[in-house]
Design a protein around this nucleic acid. Structure first.
Lengths: 270, 270
DNA sequence: CAGTGGTCTAGACCACTGA
DNA sequence: CAGTGGTCTAGACCACTGA
């Protein structure tokens, strides 16, 4: 095979970009049959695995629908799902070139009332960690973070200095995240939240409630070295009985933002 | 090769699920080196392309980081990006088993003021279509939809009966979507919105502003038949001069929801 | 230099669809 | 039955990394 010029795109990528561009130009209307793998093989003079990869990736991106025995169709895109990135607030503020600081109003152990215990998968009355922190952007209150933490996942949580590390950052470090759910709604702040954020009681706020769960608390393991030699072979295969996606609840956070100061942004583009 | 039993998972899928399960059990901490392709080839007795596919897909899902010449690492997951699905409101309400209806308060042509013209990529004063519709869930006002449409993308927009079709649905049909951007914020409704939604002026509302753009208006083309024979070959290859992602603005919508009645949900799980 | 991932090929067998 | 996509293989060449 002739080696391709240094910076040239890989063949699978050329096929993919070509189809993407043609889809963008509406060469095929939604639902319309697109060229088969065999046709693309002929057109681009590449192997079938190569066009297959291009088409498979377009399918993963939701741009085409493929049906075995039938063909490849331009996707309908009736359901637009877009990506909403949830970043650590500290990073987000610094990325904007602003200054971030936090005031810690409370960190303590409490006994979990019924609903909270259920959500964290703990017995009623079990100890939970509770923190209440206000985050500032250039000195202006931007977020009131009211958080409960499963002590099993982060036993040292109460000892952390949250004026230097955000709970989000700390928890991602000690308790690798596996699943997150959130709801976003508009509502009025509680009296306490209004006071902490310095806004009137009636100020509409954007409230994000986020629950995360993850792997079981880390057992005592050799060393979390950053790139240790991968001596991980010989594992018994199908041994994992863990249902994928069902992790241990780590934390529940209620994040309240003054509507006039905070906005979520997202985009969708294939 | 021995054929695999009927319903057995494909080998690449077995490798992938195995690694996913082990990652879920924190077998490798974030940043830690995982087995190489060669090791997995030996462990699973499959070809390298097969484990390569498994690893490539895990990388696409953000579960591992791969570095050429170095290895594969468990991902940090510091940035959690989750999927927020934007559905047609009609579908969404029906999916909940509720009844949807819409009241059309306005559909007309207007001259675009400066800011709107810019956003739709039109000259100032150019005609635009404007609709104002309230959507009800079981008879309760759920969304006030204030929308401007680029006439070039949907010339028949004003003739559509929006008590039977939602603008979202109609537009997705006539103007295939290519890109969408949105912002989500909490704010108070305007006086008109409060009246239409039947809520007090001070009610916090969830406001989604969505801009979509897409392919150029469809030229006169044969027939949009649902699965026409794909006689689409012989296209001049790299001919597409269109910058991918930059489409023609189709529509801008301001969607206002009473905070007490509407909530966005999302989840992230690898 | 050995080890890693990035990618491609030419062929194969299969399940599925629709005529 | 021909055509389609789903998947696998055994080998290959390459660029890159770090010792």
């Amino acid at each position: 095979m002739p080696a391709r010029p240094a910076a040239a795109a890989a063949p699978y990528s050329r096929v993919k970009q070509f189809l993407k561009a043609e889809l963008g130009r509406s060469r095929w209307r939604p639902g319309e049959l697109m060229p088969s793998e065999a046709e693309l093989v002929a057109q681009f003079a590449v192997s079938r695995m190569t066009v297959n990869r291009a088409l498979r990736e377009l399918q993963a991106e939701g741009l085409v629908d493929r049906v075995q025995g039938v063909g490849t169709f331009a996707a309908q895109l009736y359901r637009v799902s877009s990506t909403l990135t949830i970043r650590d607030l500290h990073e987000e503020i610094e990325a904007r070139g602003h200054r971030h600081h936090a005031e810690v109003h409370l960190t303590r152990e409490e006994k979990a009332p019924r609903e909270l215990a259920q959500q964290l998968g703990l017995p009623v009355g079990a100890p939970v960690f509770h923190s209440l922190i206000v985050h500032y952007d250039n000195g202006v209150p931007l977020q009131c973070e009211d958080r409960y933490v499963n002590p099993a996942c982060a036993p040292d949580y109460l000892g952390v200095d949250f004026t230097h590390t955000t709970p989000t950052h700390y928890l991602l470090e000690v308790a690798p995240l596996w699943e997150a759910q959130y709801t976003i709604e508009a509502s009025a702040p509680t009296e306490q939240e209004a006071r902490l954020l310095g806004v009137p009681r009636g100020e509409p706020c954007l409230v994000v409630v986020r629950r995360t769960s993850g792997a079981a608390p880390q057992p005592s393991r050799p060393r979390p070295a950053e790139r240790e030699s991968g001596r991980a072979r010989g594992a018994s295969l199908g041994a994992s009985g863990a249902q994928p996606g069902r992790g241990v609840p780590i934390t529940i956070a209620r994040l309240v933002h003054p509507g006039s100061r905070y906005q979520l942004e997202g985009r969708f583009s294939p």
